[in-house]
Write a protein that binds this DNA or RNA. Structure first.
Lengths: 352, 352
DNA sequence: CGTTAGCACTCGACTTGGTTGAGTGCTAAT
DNA sequence: ATTAGCACTCAACCAAGTCGAGTGCTAACG
């Protein structure tokens, strides 16, 4: 969780080269990487022995470690962090535009988000994570009661951001059209433009008085409004491609993959991740975040990394999109794909 | 897929006893069961040698088989089928009422179904599968346009079964209240009570004529109605507890579990199962189905069994609920839990 | 002084051979 | 028809040995 900057100054140029070589190689193979491999892999002409010394230093400094005595090295969380912070940003921009994901136009936001998740998952071979927007400051924009059957009314509620909610209200007795008209007028004059917080007990009492014998209905309506708005507060989170986790032996073999997929079914855990991302993004807009291992709040995820971004569709509709993968995920690709997706989301919802 | 009746007549009483003993034992342990085990397990006092002979017969008849030479026996699909068809029905009824699942009342059908799935999964330790109802013959029950902003109308559409759909229509120009009133009257007098099929081109043309300069809006509305209704035709399917599949070694070790969970993410495959169940249930109402291994259309599922039931909430709202588990699932428990759930669903939606 | 070659050492992964035990099929005796 | 007995099979387990990739350390080299 605590995330230190990991300054580049701490390492001289050669160490940086070796560290990145280790990381790059490990990203590809998923196996611990030894000194001999590095000595051939890099352009600097050094023998394996020298590399060994440097690697020993790097280990002491906490960037890499050995899973068991005398085997190759593997990057630590700190190592990955360094890599992500200092070494990606340059390359990323070139790649990101390489191939465009294609989001078919779909009208409903929910469908778009689901499709986005699927796209991310299939493109990256990791797991995608999408949270539906949390509705901020939702003011009531439109409220209407209509008679649908003899003894039931339909309340249609539209809040800022054009979120529409419906609620059937069973009245028990028949209500005539005239009364409905009056109720509609009453409700609209008093409630329109208000936010949930502004609809307090005093206002409700006032409304009930005005409604006279139909105060019962007012109750139902207020309930409906409250419930409708509240219902959107516990946000939905979709995942897609969860089983991609199985493709990575280091997770599969240790049985971690199962744990991880289990937490994908657990809303609370996912919320932790999403919320962390949202919070961090309140200040710096539209930046991508990368959380590595223990930087994540969720314990089961400590063998993963996640790339998150926050989308903002205006009207206070903000949500998070994430790509979850093993620590040795291809950060460049993940971030590139994510960026591309965000661009497209922007495009779709900007012209509307 | 082909499902033979598996008559009880084919087997004498002793063979039946031995077969059930094999199956019961295998259901519990998940390991191949040998002759010695059976000779102790059953009440009939026979030596292992005799059992061996009988088992040899049963193998020849296709009820059991050996995973490799000289190991215990495991039931075949045919064996399970026999068990489910002939040996459960008596016991099942007693058990089913044993413990009541508790569905908290929730207003929205979707939420209820999701919760039902979660309940099934946690109660049985298998994977639950729920399809949202396919809406049959949905007649238009209520249709209303309202002005929400200067240049946008909200169309609220209610179809039989109280399915509510909303659609924003951007008009480009401002529409005055009077026109909206007229349009509403026009639409309601002509469309109310009609099904999708009945809204044909002739009717649409008529409406457009009557609407005069606002024929544009009629177009949008008809589109909205059509889309709203059609949108519900590609049914949603929820799964819950998918990871429970990992709990069964015979699936886990062979890597089948991964395949299975993968198909849980694949809508088309799930539809096969759901549709098979729905079709079969058109005739005999409210019966439970059991599909074993190859009886299922989906190839990846051939190491599973599934217990399905069809719920019917009236108004042509029918859908399928399923419990997916390994072939050696506890059929009694699964069927009992399912029955209990169906009862509760019935109860919730009967009194409404 | 940084770099390199060489050597001893470690340790997981794999192979081999042997043992065990559950289970079978078959045959002969009851 | 049932059972006891025997030879056989085969997965699972274990111990010992080999292999190879990799390390740390030291001494030599430019």
């Amino acid at each position: 969780m605590a995330r230190e900057p990991a300054k580049i100054a701490e390492l001289d140029e050669r160490k940086v080269k070796i560290l990145t070589a280790v990381i790059r190689n490990y990203l590809e193979t998923g196996e611990p990487v030894g000194s001999r491999t590095i000595s051939k892999y890099t352009d600097l002409k050094l023998s394996s022995a020298t590399i060994r010394n440097e690697m020993s230093d790097l280990e002491e400094m906490g960037y890499i470690f050995q899973p068991h005595t005398s085997s190759g090295r593997i990057p630590t969380d700190k190592g990955y962090r360094f890599y992500v912070d200092n070494l990606i940003s340059e390359k990323e921009r070139e790649i990101q535009e390489r191939e465009e994901l294609i989001i078919e136009k779909a009208d409903k936001l929910e469908a778009v988000l689901k499709q986005a998740a699927r796209l991310l998952a299939t493109n990256t071979n990791y797991t995608a994570l999408v949270s539906t927007p949390e509705i901020h400051r939702n003011k009531l924009k439109f409220l209407q009661l209509s008679k649908v059957e003899k003894d039931s009314l339909l309340a249609v509620i539209v809040v800022e951001g054009n979120i529409i909610k419906n609620k059937m209200i069973h009245t028990g007795e028949e209500i005539d059209e005239d009364t409905i008209l009056k109720l509609n007028l009453l409700l609209n004059t008093h409630l329109n433009g208000l936010s949930l917080e502004e609809i307090n007990l005093g206002l409700i009492t006032l409304l009930k008085e005005r409604a006279g014998i139909h105060s019962e209905i007012i109750n139902s309506v207020i309930d409906a409004v409250a419930e409708a708005i509240r219902a959107d507060e516990d946000l939905e989170i979709y995942t897609s491609g969860a089983t991609n986790m199985f493709k990575y032996p280091e997770l599969m073999d240790s049985g971690k993959a199962t744990d991880i997929i289990n937490t994908f079914e657990n809303k609370e855990e996912l919320e932790k991740i999403v919320n962390a991302s949202l919070a961090e993004n309140n200040a710096g807009k539209n930046e991508m975040q990368v959380y590595i291992g223990k930087e994540m709040a969720s314990p089961a995820m400590q063998d993963c990394s996640v790339v998150t971004a926050t989308y903002d569709l205006g009207d206070g509709m903000r949500g998070t999109i994430g790509i979850v993968g093993p620590k040795r995920m291809d950060y460049e690709k993940a971030m590139g794909t994510m960026q591309s997706l965000m661009n497209q989301l922007d495009e779709i919802y900007k012209k509307k």
